[in-house]
């Protein structure tokens, strides 16, 4: 008997949801004496957030994914010219300004929402990249939305859509730690030279 799996991701659909993870604080890294090594270690800690499904699902190469198993978005959607879906079926056709808790459904407990809601631009796609590659990409203004490191910090620490990762609505595992802590890690990473893991 032969059955196909739509993708490797689909076969993971039965995997248990991720447990909420902790995120270490910058102070936890002070014992690393070499500043560059410390910086790289801080980035690896940031990587727990960057590679979390709450973030990766909307940093794809083409179409977004869903769930902790990162299965293809259902209904099927495309990136579209403005990273905002197709004409007639934009992101906001379903995603409102706030998370929407469903009633009488079970299963899907909420529909994610935020104002604005869209995919990260394709040059910021992280799916399938190593942490070192994500790091290099983040520092490259050509591929980070033209941001300086300071602006990058602001994005990580204060952007509302980034912050949604920690308040993703009922039925979804939040990103590790908190946005404040993620901001502090980013600050410490920049202050230590913004080194990338190898």
């Amino acid at each position: 008997m032969t059955r196909f799996s739509l993708s490797v991701a689909m076969t993971l659909a039965l995997a248990a949801p991720l447990a909420a993870q902790d995120l270490r604080m910058p102070a936890d890294f002070e014992n690393i004496e070499n500043e560059t090594e410390r910086s790289a270690a801080l980035f690896e800690e940031m990587g727990k957030v960057l590679t979390h499904p709450r973030c990766l699902n909307c940093h794809p190469k083409d179409s977004p994914t869903q769930g902790d198993d990162m299965h293809p978005h259902e209904p099927p959607v495309i990136r579209g010219d403005a990273d905002f879906g197709a004409a007639g079926m934009n992101c906001t056709t379903c995603h409102g300004p706030e998370n929407f808790e469903t009633t009488g459904v079970g299963g899907i407990e909420s529909i994610p929402g935020h104002e604005p809601w869209s995919l990260a631009p394709v040059e910021m796609a992280w799916v399938d990249l190593s942490l070192g590659e994500i790091c290099a990409q983040l520092k490259d203004p050509e591929r980070n939305g033209g941001r300086s490191l300071e602006e990058l910090h602001e994005h990580m620490a204060e952007d509302g859509l980034v912050g949604w990762g920690w308040e993703p609505g009922a039925g979804r595992t939040p990103a590790p730690g908190s946005q404040d802590l993620f901001g502090e890690l980013t600050r410490a990473w920049i202050d230590t030279g913004a080194a990338c893991p190898s």
Partner: peptide, 13 residues
């Protein structure tokens, strides 16, 4: 060359 003998062909999970 592959015979399909169980439906559906693309199970969700």
């Amino acid at each position: 060359g592959t015979a399909l003998r169980r439906l559906p062909i693309i199970p969700v999970a």
